[in-house]
């Protein structure tokens, strides 16, 4: 019997590299967009790994990485109430206003 079963200590005691979220600018002039995550020991390695994992076909010209623990998010369970204030403000949209047909360029 070889020593690679479930009780192997070296497998179980491994400490994981931190998780990083990856954002990629696909071309100059566009925003960085979240593409996924990966593990890396530090930021430099995270950027290099992100290049290898997420841009093997020239999908990016710039990469941001952020340690996942540093991301704070709105609570999805409270999304309805949280975004509610914008729901009844239709006058924020140009379509709320009627422009006479004779008026051009507006």
């Amino acid at each position: 019997m070889t020593n690679w079963g479930p009780n192997n200590k070296s497998i179980m005691s491994q400490s994981e590299w931190p998780l990083w979220e990856v954002f990629i600018r696909s071309k100059q002039g566009l925003d960085h967009k979240h593409v996924g995550s990966l593990h890396a020991a530090d930021a430099t390695m995270a950027v290099q790994n992100a290049r290898d994992v997420y841009t093997r076909r020239l999908e990016g010209v710039s990469i941001w990485v952020v340690e996942s623990t540093h991301i704070h998010a709105s609570n999805p369970d409270e999304a309805a109430e949280f975004f509610d204030p914008a729901a009844d403000k239709v006058y924020r949209h140009p379509t709320f206003y009627t422009v006479p047909d004779s008026i051009k360029h507006m």
Partner: peptide, 14 residues
């Protein structure tokens, strides 16, 4: 298993 030391060393280095 043979790569485990790389994981550990990179963490220690960081």
């Amino acid at each position: 298993e043979e790569g485990a030391w790389v994981l550990e060393a990179a963490l220690a280095h960081a």
